[in-house]
Simulated assay, not measured.
Amino acid sequence: MTTTKQILMGLVAATSVCVLPNHSVNAASLINFEPVDGKFPDGSLAVDNMPITNQFSSLGVTFGIDRNQDGLPDAGLFPRLEAVGSSDSIAGFESTNGGEDDTAAPGFEDRLGNFFLRGVGSLANGESLLISYTSPTKAASAEIWDIDGRPTGLGEQWEVQALGSDLSVIDSIVSPAGTFPLETSPLEASPWFWSFDRPEKDIHAIRLVYTGSATGVGLAFDNFSPLAVEGSEPETNTSVPEPTSAIGLLIFGAFAYRLRKGK
């Protein structure tokens, strides 16, 4: 006949080889605007020039345009999905260095992929991309593509703003200014990577504001990591019992089972 001691010894031995790690094993989801089997997480079919709003709401973010910079999405204005290459008259960026519009510089093709996010039209002046969070985050990262200059000396430039609970700016990052000639410009048809990594989860929205002096500028946004700097692991609020706690729960359950059987 199996005794209570034998049951408890078996439980302790089994628990010692299946201890759960005391950290999250989930990686942050990277939004690169590449559909899986032609679809986005909400099930919508990916089509060139389609409005992007809540297709990624299951990942805790929605996209909009904030022209008046009040931290809220403007009604009826949405960023658009843009296919790479000059398939239509609307471009996210001009590859004036001998290539097609919306085409990555040599060596960056895989990074850009087949799709990215652009503004409402081909010009982003005054159209600030807004990313709103369902729950605040402490970290995020992404890329703005094709920050270059003009022969007149004017250059493109962006400011990435982190907005707090009252939608005021709590942190910001300014891109390098675009340079000319394009043959030597490091960001011609190439990505500028930015990231936030703050001490606490106080980022409620992220806004991209065009601050450059050049006009006729498009927006190309890609490879957005909403919960962590790309390549790192996000923090979670999920607590996992320590091994001793798990063993204690199993032992308590075993005693309760033996007591019920003994009645």
Rank of each mutant, 00 (worst) to 15 (best):
S57C: 03
S57L: 09
S57D: 12
S58G: 14
L59M: 14
L59W: 06
L59T: 00
L59V: 00
G60P: 04
G60Q: 06
G60A: 08
T62D: 14
F63Y: 13
G64T: 01
G64F: 05
I65A: 13
I65C: 12
D66H: 05
R67Q: 11
R67E: 11
Q69E: 14
G71Q: 05
G71A: 09
G71F: 05
P73I: 00
P73S: 09
P73A: 14
P73T: 03
D74S: 15
D74T: 13
A75G: 07
G76L: 11
G76I: 04
L77I: 02
F78S: 15
P79W: 04
P79S: 09
L81W: 05
L81N: 06
L81Y: 06
E82F: 10
A83Y: 03
A83D: 02
A83M: 14
V84K: 07
G85N: 05
S86E: 12
D88N: 15
S89M: 07
I90D: 08
I90W: 04
F93L: 05
S95G: 15
S95K: 04
N97M: 07
N97A: 10
N97V: 07
N97Q: 12
N97T: 07
G98N: 07
G98T: 08
E100T: 12
E100S: 15
E100Y: 10
E100I: 04
D101W: 09
D101R: 15
D102E: 08
D102F: 03
D102V: 01
D102Q: 08
T103R: 12
T103Q: 15
A105K: 13
P106D: 11
P106E: 06
G107R: 09
G107A: 13
F108D: 15
F108Q: 13
E109N: 13
E109Y: 06
L112F: 03
G113P: 03
G113Q: 03
G113Y: 03
N114R: 13
F115N: 14
F116A: 06
G119E: 02
G119V: 00
G119M: 02
G119H: 07
V120I: 14
V120C: 08
V120D: 09
G121R: 09
S122M: 10
L123E: 14
L123K: 07
N125F: 04
E127M: 05
E127L: 13
S128I: 01
L129S: 06
L130E: 08
I131E: 06
I131Y: 08
S132Y: 00
S132V: 04
S132I: 00
Y133F: 15
Y133P: 01
S135F: 06
S135K: 12
P136I: 01
T137W: 00
T137V: 15
T137Y: 00
K138M: 05
K138I: 00
A139D: 02
